[in-house]
Design a binder for these strands. Structure first.
Lengths: 194, 194
DNA sequence: ACAAAAAATGACACGTATGTATTTTTATTT
DNA sequence: AAATAAAAATACATACGTGTCATTTTTTGT
């Protein structure tokens, strides 16, 4: 596979990502991707053999980028509380994005595929986020910024709340104010008085 | 529509419910329901005009039953903490049920239909659960069982955690221990020491 | 028991998604 | 520039889901 082929593969993935963002996972067909990429049906099969494969690769791209944003923010020179707030604000922005269909698409994909619950991209993302938040809280406790008995559990709790907000945003809708209240509640539970 | 028709309608809905529980929403076709009910394609269309309609009615049934279970538990003669623990245990049982595909199906349905976020069954269920938990916490605060500044926000927080656990159970998997730890965390945040 | 009405059936026509195989176009090599 | 290889496009065969409709079966009333 030549350099040009690799470029085209990448182009297809990027275009497909947009399609998934517009339509979710289940409503995207090979035809949709073909049309978005302005290539032929047969051509697409030369690069990918199913929408599943395409979506998985899109997800992989996505998770790499997410990690980057994450590590960028924690290398900032700020207090633990600052970083946590930054992180929560970032999450808020993400989960309030109108028609955040890539999130939907991910859920749909996992629902349909009945993937192994033990080892999948989502789980790895979740676990790594928990670890980072845990470290953050530990640092905050050292600094006496936070008060917390069980940092790991506190970190997990934050992630569950965020997941809850995310799915609610996609189904019953959440307002900016609701998210803010949750963020305040989280901070207060760590003993942060604003 | 005679009494017999009503019976048959009910029979179809109950059978369809099982099908949705096995396959989710998106993978269920009229054919699946027809075969499960052991009736003909045309016959089904006499009672329902789409899988959407069937699913919505199944959901409605479900939400009515859920309300019943709920009010049963709060009429018990017990302390606020007891009732809250009972409720959380009930939720735990529900969310750990292997292949809880009706939950999945509900999400899939809401993803696909892009229903009004303001007024839908899920939202009504969520809001009513928040209200009940809020009342419960208020009662607990009166009793000095709980400590809590903002009962409404605490109630909302509990619901978001539960929603987070629910979606995680369906995608990345959660263990019984993880749920227990969350329940303890919730109780501790209300000042309950076990 | 028979006619009329109601309910149920199964086949049909239509649309759409998939994957492959053949043909055509484009690129590469000598 | 011709021959060969690679890439892309098109057409095709298959499969499946939907909704309707003519026909058959069952139920109901007299």
């Amino acid at each position: 596979m030549g350099d040009k082929s690799i470029q085209k593969r990448k182009y297809i993935l990027e275009t497909a990502r947009k399609v998934f963002m517009e339509k979710g996972f289940k409503r995207v067909t090979m035809k949709d991707i073909v049309e978005a990429c302005d290539i032929s049906r047969g051509g697409l099969y030369l690069y990918f053999e199913s929408t599943d494969q395409i979506f998985l690769e899109v997800l992989r791209m996505e998770s790499l980028e997410a990690d980057d944003v994450f590590s960028d923010s924690i290398t900032e020179d700020a207090t633990a509380a600052d970083i946590l707030i930054l992180f929560l604000k970032e999450q808020k922005k993400e989960l309030l994005r109108k028609n955040n269909t890539l999130t939907q698409a991910t859920y749909e994909f996992y629902f349909e595929k009945e993937l192994p619950k033990k080892d999948n991209i989502l789980k790895r993302q979740f676990d790594s986020a928990v670890k980072i938040i845990e470290k953050l809280i530990e640092a905050g406790v050292e600094n006496e910024e936070f008060f917390c008995d069980d940092c790991k559990e506190a970190a997990r709790n934050i992630m569950f709340v965020l997941e809850g907000l995310k799915i609610c945003a996609q189904t019953i809708g959440v307002t900016s104010e609701m998210v803010d209240r949750e963020i305040l509640y989280i901070l207060k539970s760590l003993g942060v008085e604003d």
